[in-house]
């Protein structure tokens, strides 16, 4: 990992969030956008479908180029992790993008507390079960 990639990638993420709030008045919170889409209510689709399509295109393109991205772990670990992420982000109304980037950038106390909490718990989990995944 080169620093320039980390900074440029982060700046891109920040720009994406900035564009969406400044022009559309929407929060670029991926768990919220995706879970609204899962409800399949016509009123909830629209811009969310377009955002998700844009988000998925770079990954799809890499896959078609034959350089797919990958998550390597035991299927049970992947399933358990996805399940916890789905339940947790629903209850917390946000994830790394909605709370960690947008909420923190908006200086929301809820988001600052949420981000500190999920980071601390994630670090604790890695400390105790680091050998598993």
């Amino acid at each position: 990992m080169e620093f320039i990639h980390l900074i440029a990638g982060g700046a891109a993420i920040g720009s994406a969030a900035a564009i969406l709030i400044a022009l559309n008045g929407r929060i670029a919170g991926i768990s919220g956008i995706y879970s609204h889409l899962l409800q399949l209510r016509p009123g909830f689709l629209g811009w969310r479908v377009m955002f998700l399509l844009g988000l998925l295109l770079p990954g799809l393109w890499l896959g078609l180029q034959g350089t797919p991205l990958a998550i390597h772990a035991k299927p049970a670990i992947i399933f358990a992790s996805g399940l916890l992420v789905g339940i947790g982000t629903h209850l917390a109304s946000g994830c790394t993008s909605g709370h960690g980037v947008c909420g923190m950038a908006n200086l929301s106390s809820r988001s600052i507390v949420a981000t500190l909490t999920f980071m601390a718990v994630a670090m604790l989990v890695r400390f105790f079960v680091g050998a598993v995944a």
């Binding site: 992790s81 916890l84 629903h90 917390a92 507390v113 909490t117 890695r126």
Partner: peptide
């Protein structure tokens, strides 16, 4: 918010 963030953190960390 706190419980949800903790559950999400557990899933993210593993």
């Amino acid at each position: 918010l706190l419980i949800g963030s903790a559950i999400f953190g557990a899933g993210w960390g593993m």
